[in-house]
Design a protein around this nucleic acid. Structure first.
Lengths: 164, 164
DNA sequence: TATTGTTATACTCTATAACTATA
DNA sequence: TATAGTTATAGAGTATAACAATA
């Protein structure tokens, strides 16, 4: 493991959350809480929120996806997707295209405008993350991302086993 | 870096969040969202929520801490701390002890009962995390935790610089 | 004047449940 | 009967703003 040498201990007498740091879950929560504020600010100039940014990315990567499928990928309920899609539609970023073979469903499509929006927002988020994590080596960031993916995968597997 | 060999690509045609995976922030969000449900369930039998569990841990590690200090450590507003402390007090886990030198403030203290509660809850959360992450090598979990701590520290530093 | 704890209120995100129109 | 999308409502969790007591 190639962590750089920044493992200073918390030896202060000041109030701290030392007892909580041992939990992976707590550290994930802390990291997320601190990040989401910044991310929200980064996306605001584009008229996007974290939810709509994510939804746009998924539709972009899976043209013609239905709202139900989108809810499964984003891991939220269908009722929540309606709001996100409404918002993206109002931005002119995506279209609800009727599905000829199933008139209940919509095929979600990213518009040309939506594609440009994504490009700009994606670049902003990326450089924001670069700045935010510039104290971590590039290699460490990659490690972090991969471990998070695998931890999530592991948790998902556990939950699926529990559901059976 | 000692990642084990589980770097399978997402090559399916199924809808996916592939485009989002490149962002550290998104992976942190995913991981947290998947984790918090399980954590809530783990804590429920003890009458604790994530917030009260965290608050109890901080008070335990910093006896006599004030509510304002607690709000700073937990990174939430003072008004939010009132609810957490009320709840822990109702559980008999902590006391609001008057401060003789400043009658506006309380010194928070963990009761004997609160200490036992923490011990049991801490053990439950720990074994839950062990089970949840048993597909990750112990070394990888340590890496993940350290990187999260450092990423958060880095983000905090950035925000403080921005506030100046 | 500033700070501690408190209350009331509002906002964001998400879930649940009931509905409609299709299948 | 079951499913896709929708609507209305409610629940966490947190923020903001105003307040009383105290510094």
């Amino acid at each position: 493991m190639a962590l750089s040498s920044d493992t200073d201990e918390d030896i202060s007498v000041q109030p701290s959350d030392r007892l909580l740091r041992q939990f992976v879950g707590y550290n994930i929560k802390r990291a997320y809480m601190q990040l989401q504020g910044d991310l929200t600010q980064t996306l605001a100039p584009f008229g996007l929120r974290i939810g709509t940014f994510s939804a746009l990315a998924v539709v972009l990567g899976s043209e013609g996806i239905s709202q139900t499928q989108l809810s499964e990928v984003l891991n939220i309920k269908r009722s929540g997707v309606v709001v996100l899609v409404d918002e993206l539609e109002n931005l002119g970023a995506i279209d609800r295209k009727p599905v000829e073979t199933d008139r209940r469903a919509y095929a979600l499509q990213v518009t040309a405008q939506g594609w440009h929006l994504w490009q700009n927002a994606e670049r902003a988020v990326q450089s924001h993350e670069d700045a935010l994590f510039d104290k971590l080596a590039v290699e460490d960031i990659r490690t972090l991302r991969e471990l998070l993916v695998r931890a999530t995968r592991s948790a998902t597997r556990k939950r699926q086993e529990a559901d059976e």
